[in-house]
């Protein structure tokens, strides 16, 4: 009976996790020792700040991040730019606002409360400019891909010459990690493409790492708070469980002693 129970519980656990294991892609992703991984994971501020630089200088020319506002860059648990830096970053962008009292739209410098400016006015425009492929919005991209951060990083460094005999369609590139190995986006990163303001050497893998770090935060901005709250809740629950367990023993001892 007890062995049966044990098997039963084990089977349930296997069932719960099986779908995720089973769906793992055939090509092994490059695993990184991300600082945000694990139950005590935190973001690396300087990597987030560098990652924002890569995003804004490289990715943002095609990829939008509609769910983020400039103010998010200064919020706790994120890149934590100072308030003045956030204001300066926002002011670099031209925002279309209005209509004004004459009914006209006008442009003004960005404010922290503004959403990230999109490179294209709509999806159709972005598809027209990119040979029919829609550069996906990057706000929750990490959560929208199997393998998450490791997948994004692998993809960014996964550009290769196609193996002999592989028939590559027109206007696409070979990528080891892309589903079907064909990707419309050309290799976006190359050594020295950006010059990091903190002096870090901008190698291709460094940039891929930083921008993935940034995108992971963008997809899950409250991750640090979630981990921290989680520890408090679980430690609290364990204490309460122990108290209730001993109280239960006491209460039931009345019945047990009657036997």
């Amino acid at each position: 009976m007890n062995i049966n129970k044990f098997i039963y519980i084990k089977l349930i656990i296997i069932l719960l996790f099986s779908s995720n294991i089973l769906f793992a892609s055939d090509t092994k992703l490059i695993k990184q020792n991300w600082s945000f991984k694990g139950v005590t994971g935190k973001f690396d501020r300087s990597s987030l700040q560098r990652g924002y630089q890569v995003y804004t200088e490289v990715c943002a020319s095609c990829h939008s991040m509609n769910l983020l506002s400039y103010r998010n860059l200064g919020e706790k648990g994120g890149p934590e730019f100072s308030l003045d830096q956030v204001k300066a970053i926002a002011a670099n962008f031209e925002i279309t606002d209005g209509p004004n009292s004459d009914g006209e739209m006008f442009t003004r410098p960005g404010r922290p409360s503004d959403k990230f400016v999109s490179p294209y006015p709509n999806v159709q425009a972005s598809m027209a400019a990119n040979g029919g492929a829609y550069p996906p919005d990057m706000s929750v991209l990490v959560k929208a891909r199997k393998g998450g951060s490791d997948y994004i990083y692998s993809l960014l460094v996964g550009y290769e010459d196609p193996p002999s005999g592989f028939k590559l369609d027109d206007g696409v590139y070979y990528n080891k990690y892309m589903d079907g190995n064909q990707i419309k986006m050309s290799n976006p990163l190359s050594d020295g493409l950006v010059s990091y303001s903190d002096g870090t050497n901008a190698t291709e893998s460094q940039m891929a790492k930083d921008v993935t770090h940034f995108l992971t935060w963008a997809a899950e901005p409250h991750l640090e708070n979630r981990h921290k709250t989680g520890w408090r809740v679980i430690i609290f629950l364990i204490i309460l469980t122990l108290l209730v367990y001993f109280s239960m023993k006491k209460v039931w001892s009345r019945i047990d002693s009657e036997k």
Binding site: V39, T229, V233, I234, L237
Partner: peptide, 11 residues
């Protein structure tokens, strides 16, 4: 049960 539940929610 809540401890397991919290494990999912937070981690």
């Amino acid at each position: 049960f809540l401890i397991i539940f919290s494990g999912f929610v937070f981690f």
